[in-house]
Every structure is written in C-alpha cells, then in structure tokens.
Computed example of a mutant assay.
Amino acid sequence: MNLFKIAYKSLRANPLTTLLNIILIAFGVGIITILLLASDQIGQKLDNNSKDIDLVVGAKGSPLQLILSSIFYIDFPTGNIPLKDAEALERNPLVKAAVPLALGDNYNGYRIVGTDSGFVRLYALKLVAGRFWKSDFEVNIGDDVARSQHLKVGDRFFGAHGLTGNGDIHRNHAYIVCGILSPQGNVTDNLVLTNVASVWRMHETKEEHVDGKPEPYENGEREITSLLIQYRSPMSVILFPRMVNQSTSMQAASPALESAHLFSLIGIGVDTLQWFAVLIMAISAVSVFISLYNSLKERKYDLAIMRTMGASKIKLFLIIIFEGVLLTVIGAVIGLVVGHLTLELIGRYQDSTQAKLSGNVFLVRETYLIGVGFGIGLLASIIPAIQAYQSNISKILAKN
C-alpha cells in the first residue's frame, strides 16, 4: 500500500480546497523569502560599499544623505566643499588617506565620479580590459555599465548634467572609455570613473590661466563634493569628526553609524511584513486543519473499508499526516520559487542602478522555510490523524 499515493489522490479529490491551502502557504513563504533575500542583499551592499571607509566629509546637511550620495550613490549630494578646505583635512595628522569625489553628471543613469588613484586603492579595483585613466575625459567603467550600455575600450559617449536623466547633455566634451573594471560586487560596478579635473572642466564657468594652463573655477573657487576618509589611529575616531563638525563649515558622517540607522529604519518595515507573513501562515495552518478535519468526516467509511482490507491504525494515521505535510511542503516550495521570481522582477524594474536587488541568490536560511512548511503540515494534521487512528470500524460500517 503506497501511503503517499493515497494521500496525493485524496488531495486531488478536493482540488479547490487543496489549491486554496497551497496558495495561502505559498503566499506566506513567498513574502518571507522576498524579505530574507532583500534584507540580506541590502546588508551586504551596505557592508561592501562602506568597507574601509571610516568617515565621509561633505557640505552641511543630512549625514544620512551625505553617506547615501557619497558611498551608495543613491541620493543627491548635500552640496560642495571648497577644495582648499578639503586639502587642509587631507594634511591633518589624524588622517591616513583621503579620497576626493566630484559628482554632478550621469550617463544614462550611471553616475560619473571624478576622483583620483586613491579610489582605485580603496576599492582594490582591477581591470578586465584597457588601462586606468591618465588624462582628462578618460574613464574607467564598471562591469554593469559596460554590459548594459554595450561599451568597450575606445568608445566615446557624452555625459548629462544631473544625477539622473539626459535632459542637459554636455556635448562640449566626450568621455573616452580607456578601461573596463572587473566585477567587484559593490557599487563600483555601476560607476563611471574619471579624474576630478574632467568634472571641473565639464562645469567650468570661467577660466583663469596659470602658467599657460587653463584652471577651471566654480563661483571663483574650485570645489569637490566630498572626501572619503581613512583614519590613521583609533584616536582619530574620537577627535577628527568633532573637529570637522565644530571647527569647519563642513560636516563629518560615519558610514557605520548612518548605515546602522538606515538599516534600522528598513528593519521596521521588514518586521511588519514578516509578522504579516507569519499571520498568513498561521491562517493557512488553520485552513489545512479544517480541510483535513472535514475531509476525515466524509472519508470515515472509506477508511473503515481500508481497515477491513488489512490496513493498520498506524497506516491510517500516517495517511492523514502525509496529506497535511504534502500539502504544506508543496506550498512552501512554490512560495520559494515565487519569492525569487518576484524579487528578480522587482530588481529589473528598479530605477536605481546602485541598489538593484536580484532573485538569483540562494541562502541557506531559505531551506528552513521548507522545514516550516513541514512543521505546519504536521501540526495541522495531527488531530485529524489521531481521530482516524481512534475510529471505531464496527460503528462506522453499521451506520452505512
């Protein structure tokens, strides 16, 4: 006697009820799957992108906005800071290294970042083709930029003013791709990197000639967007941010603190949705219990006949258990698949190129959801199974 086959045929006998229970389980597991994948990827992006960056210095404003714009490139900068003030900070004995950033343009939504060789060292960037930039308007592009925009070494393109959109294209200078970065698994995959002078020259409003070379100025003084700081010693953690915030016109923001704050804000919504998913799965457990309980009433005669044909009490018990477990495990597997597909669709239609989510990621924790489905099926079917085990054959047959 194949118990699984009997359980499967029993579920097929009530297709609408079976389908409803599977949908409930799949919906709850799907939501939890999306939350697990999204929170894990967001956490990894926060860690990978802010790795080895101790502090970000920029214009006064929101510290979180400064971190989002200068490390994750998903917000507008708080403003610009004078180059001479930034250079003074670079010379501070508390600073080990300082990497300048000059933002303001994009190419089809990918941000163009003016920086220096310190950025290459900070993220340990490597090339799959070409070389690193040397001259103005030479760029290195991230792996995602190269693939999505179909760019190769030697290609030219025009940047557009602003961090999104192509409304104001700078046609006075074309950027030249001189190198393509290897995949890094962080924000650099979505960036276009060049030197700071290229950004200045693209936005110059007047020129002043020094030693025969044009020097671009913005409002009479050269500016950058922010500085990425690495500390020289643990003492810098205490002294340097306070010095910047109290003694200069700039602000200092800690990536670790602001990322934790951001994740805590995200966590509120994640927790709410998780409880919603748990509620759905609890409802599905009740639904499975009710359907098995009602099914047992209708099948008492069939089960009694099975007993007369040699089926033991334990086999009847296991048939009911298998029905509940089979129902919920199928729902859990479908939920996992739907969760991954849904997140992949969400990622493909995201506007931001810097915070894309993917459904092509599998976590060990997801296997626990199959166990949860198994547990729900076992819990929901235990009472109907006990009743099947304790059924009185003679009374049931006498009534029929």
Rank of each mutant, 00 (worst) to 15 (best):
F76H: 13
F276A: 13
P214T: 08
I383T: 09
D116G: 00
D105N: 11
E207S: 07
K134N: 11
I81N: 03
F374Y: 03
R171S: 10
L318H: 04
I67H: 01
D144Q: 11
V244L: 08
N49W: 06
K206Q: 10
V192F: 05
N219V: 06
D155W: 05
V278S: 05
I25A: 05
F76S: 15
L273G: 09
V95F: 08
Q350E: 13
H340M: 12
E221L: 10
Y8M: 12
S352D: 14
G331N: 07
S198T: 06
D85E: 15
Y175K: 03
E138N: 01
V139E: 04
T115W: 00
H203P: 05
L163I: 10
S247M: 10
N92S: 00
Y8R: 12
I31Q: 01
I321L: 15
D54F: 07
I22M: 08
S247K: 12
V196N: 00
G28Y: 02
P384K: 11
L378N: 04
R12T: 10
F4Y: 13
K96C: 03
F317N: 07
G28P: 00
V325K: 03
F317G: 05
E223D: 03
R171V: 11
L181W: 00
K356T: 15
P93V: 07
I53V: 15
V361R: 11
Y73M: 14
N190D: 12
S236N: 06
K5Q: 13
L379I: 14
L343D: 01
I6N: 04
T115E: 07
D136C: 01
N92Q: 07
I71Y: 06
L125S: 08
I266A: 15
K9D: 01
Y8F: 15
G61V: 08
F132A: 01
R111G: 00
E138K: 09
I319P: 03
N245Y: 10
N140A: 07
T248R: 06
L363T: 09
V113Q: 02
P241F: 12
W275N: 02
M281E: 05
N294A: 13
V145W: 06
N294C: 10
T248L: 10
G104R: 03
Q350N: 08
D116Y: 04
E298C: 04
K51R: 13
H209N: 05
S69N: 01
F276G: 12
H170C: 02
E207I: 11
E344L: 07
Y389K: 05
N14M: 11
L122Q: 13
G159W: 02
K134C: 01
V187T: 01
R222K: 13
Q387N: 09
A102S: 13
A160V: 04
R131E: 12
G269S: 14
F158Y: 13
N48G: 02
L327P: 04
K45D: 07
M243D: 07
D302Q: 14
T194A: 07
A311E: 05
V288M: 03
F137I: 09
K96S: 11
I229S: 02
A332D: 02
H340G: 01
S198A: 14
Y123F: 15
R111A: 01
Q41E: 08
K60I: 08
E258K: 15
E204Y: 03
A260N: 15
G28H: 00
A98N: 04
R91I: 05
T367G: 14
L103C: 07
L46F: 14
R121G: 12
F263I: 13
I346L: 14
